[in-house]
Amino acid sequence: MKTKSTFLVCCIIALLGIPSFVHGQPPRGPFVISPKVNPDKTVTFSYLAPNATTVLLDGNQFGSANVPMTKNAEGVWSVTVGPVKPDIYPYGFKVDGTTVMDPANVAFFPNERFKASLVEIPSDSPAIYALQNVPHGSITYDYYPSVENSTGTIVVYTPPGYNKETAKKYPVYYLISGTTDTEETFWKVGKVNLMLDNMIAQGKAKSMIVVMPYGNPLAKIAEQTGKDKPSDVMNRDGDDALKRMKLFETDLITKVIPYVEKNYRTINNRDNRAIGGFSRGGGQTLRAAFNNVDKFAYVCSYASYISPAEMNKSFTNITADPAKTNKDFKLLWSGIGTEDFLYKGTTEWEAYLKDKKINVKTYAIPGGHTWMNVKSYLNETLPILFK
């Protein structure tokens, strides 16, 4: 039987809306803010791990690889690095040898094989990929009937005004992420939506729909049939890689494009379709475009190539009649970083095309195989699509 005092306490708890189990909850640790970008463009990273022996900042892409962090009395490890060049960078922490994301940060790098947090260092004047006070488009997650009776996923950007101007139709850019990236990466890391919002507002780019498919349908099939996810392809030019690229091409041409053109207001001809991609997605781009010249007039390869040997074997339709190819493709564009591990293969492919009298617009910048460079490729190509 309850005493009067116990009864009174229970009534107060009920009246205040306080759950009666609060007394059984463990105490919470200190509130952690991370990352904190300082006015001088240094960045303070923090991680709560009172029982850890060592915590390192894993920020290789902004020059802070394996930087030791210092623990305070509350068990929060911190370090300040920089100043850091304005851009968006992946990072994480190594806690007693195990790499983890930053639990205090909701921005993350979507990838099949690794997870990293993202930090944005703003420039003094807004970058083209920064959130600005302009009309914004929309991002939609969508599903479509994919190859081998699977269900595929796409992320779709529709431009500002799409939902208001209901009679207007738009050109489409099919944009494919790199190896182990997902259909979210061009949005969450590449910021293609904000870049287009800003470019459209400034009159630098045409209003367009961007369709971002998942580049690994074989993994989606395995997931939906209870099989193990296939291992990563080690040889980019090997038979297994080419087989997987063909499966993606089949999915894109026979499933994705018909679904998009049925469910979105698109202009359904080759002059209003563009295709582009980064790394593996660039290889998928080139093969899909060269095998389906009737489908795409604009082709953008970001840090990728097809070897001259494969070109001679599989794509004589591109090289046999250069005048026709140059007429068919309103844009054939290739970008690469000078420190990219694919630089040699890419520049050899570009030289091969030029030797065959194929018009290819080339673009080389410093940097490696990174999404910082991808945003530069987007900055160059988005304004010249559908012009």
Rank of each mutant, 00 (worst) to 15 (best):
T140K: 15
N133K: 14
P122M: 11
E148M: 11
D142L: 06
Y144P: 01
S150V: 08
Y170A: 04
I139N: 02
S125F: 09
T140H: 14
P160L: 11
I139E: 05
T153F: 03
V147L: 09
D124S: 15
L131K: 08
S125G: 10
T166R: 11
Y157S: 04
P122S: 12
Y141K: 14
D124R: 15
D124K: 15
N133G: 01
L131I: 06
G152C: 11
A130Y: 04
E165F: 09
P122L: 08
I121H: 01
Y157T: 03
Y162R: 11
G137K: 00
N133T: 15
S138G: 02
N163Q: 12
G152N: 04
A167L: 09
E165A: 15
T158Y: 05
Y141R: 12
E165Y: 09
Y170H: 02
K168F: 02
D142N: 07
S123E: 13
P160S: 14
N133I: 06
S146M: 01
A127K: 00
Y144E: 05
S138I: 11
V156P: 00
G161E: 12
K169M: 04
T166A: 05
I139V: 08
Y162F: 11
Y129C: 02
T153I: 14
Y129D: 06
G152F: 03
D142V: 15
S150P: 05
D142C: 07
T153R: 02
E165K: 12
Y162G: 11
K169Q: 12
T158S: 13
V156E: 09
S150N: 11
V147Y: 00
D142I: 12
A167H: 10
N149P: 04
S146L: 00
K164F: 05
S125E: 14
S146K: 00
V134H: 05
V156L: 11
Q132K: 11
S123R: 14
D142K: 08
I121W: 03
Y157R: 01
S123L: 09
A130P: 01
P135T: 04
P159I: 02
V155G: 03
P135V: 00
P122Y: 07
A167Q: 13
